[in-house]
């Protein structure tokens, strides 16, 4: 009786969440193996089971494969930069005390509260060719001639760098905030003991701080990796996938194939692949976060 009543409290929220997530997911899983085929009896195309044909079409498409490597490359580079910079900033902030440091830390966490698409759109004014903040400053302060200024818009490499910079700008603060919270929850007795043993500076960092921080670091990396692989808003707002389709992310392709070309089979196959990758890394993150919770809050 008691357990049943407990579920009554949970059920509305659980049903709502699962209806919106599981319903569409099942739709995708099924449609990944379906494709329209002409049915002579009915005189019109009908959905038929086609096995792995949609997946085969995906693997045969060079543009789509390019977007896979591009997205994975951007995501991994972004995560490494975010975590390294975030850790450096968190260690610096951790050694500071007082009001100024707290205010500065608060300011630093502001980017992650902003809509990514607004940040990307704003970045178009920073990366604009002749008049943007970056190229304008390069020309004015460093005297870079116009023909040698980075071409943020029409060069695929520089466009990718711009997207990467926006991603890193927005999410390093997240790594900073989480790692700082992790540092602050470390037991101070260990530091007293290590100091008595003569540890200081780098050896303290290497042998006490970082090992203690490891569970938090692992969770941060996994969460950021999962989020980065979903990359959509920033390329959409900043480059629209251009020049050409050079910076069109994997998620942007799914949207275009599914809702512009209405090739639901191919879009579903691609969605299913993304889901499998994210679900496996996500499960790992959840499992590790459960462990980290017992470390940081125990």
């Amino acid at each position: 009786m008691r357990t049943l009543r407990g579920y009554l409290w949970v059920a509305p929220a659980l049903v709502w969440t699962l209806a919106i997530s599981l319903g569409p997911t099942l739709y995708m899983v099924v449609h990944a193996f379906l494709a329209p085929r002409f049915d002579p009896a009915a005189g019109r195309p009908r959905l038929r089971w086609v096995g792995f044909e949609n997946f085969a079409r995906f693997v045969a498409d060079d543009q789509l494969l390019h977007s896979v490597w591009w997205t994975v490359g951007v995501a991994c580079t972004a995560v490494v930069l975010e975590v390294v910079l975030g850790l450096a900033l968190a260690l610096a902030a951790w050694s500071l005390t007082g009001r100024a440091a707290r205010v500065a830390g608060g300011l630093l966490t502001m980017p992650m509260l902003m809509a990514p698409v607004a940040v990307a759109y704003l970045a178009t004014t920073v990366f604009a060719q002749d008049v943007g903040l970056i190229n304008g400053s390069l020309a004015r302060w460093l005297g870079v001639p116009p023909e040698r200024l980075p071409n943020w818009r029409s060069d695929p490499v520089w466009a990718t760098v711009a997207i990467l910079l926006v991603e890193v700008w927005q999410w390093t603060p997240f790594c900073f905030a989480v790692l700082l919270a992790g540092l602050a929850s470390q037991p101070s007795e260990l530091y007293e003991a290590a100091r008595i043993d003569g540890a200081a500076g780098w050896s303290l960092l290497r042998h006490v701080t970082l090992p203690l921080l490891r569970p938090v670091l692992v969770v941060v990396v996994l969460i950021r990796l999962v989020e980065s692989l979903k990359l959509f808003d920033v390329p959409y707002g900043l480059t629209r996938g251009g020049p050409g389709t050079a910076t069109q992310s994997y998620s942007m392709w799914i949207k275009e194939i599914g809702l512009t070309r209405y090739d639901v089979g191919l879009a579903s196959a691609m969605g299913l692949l993304l889901l499998v990758v994210l679900a496996s890394s996500g499960t790992m993150a959840l499992w590790l976060s459960k462990r980290a919770r017992s470390v940081t809050q125990g």
């Binding site: 969440t17 739709y27 959509f232 579903s268 969605g271």
Partner: peptide, 22 residues
Amino acid sequence: TLLVFLSQRFLPPVVVAVPLAL
């Protein structure tokens, strides 16, 4: 049960949104 809720955060929004839009 909490994990069931949390796992929703890993669903890529496109995977959910394309079928929902259709």
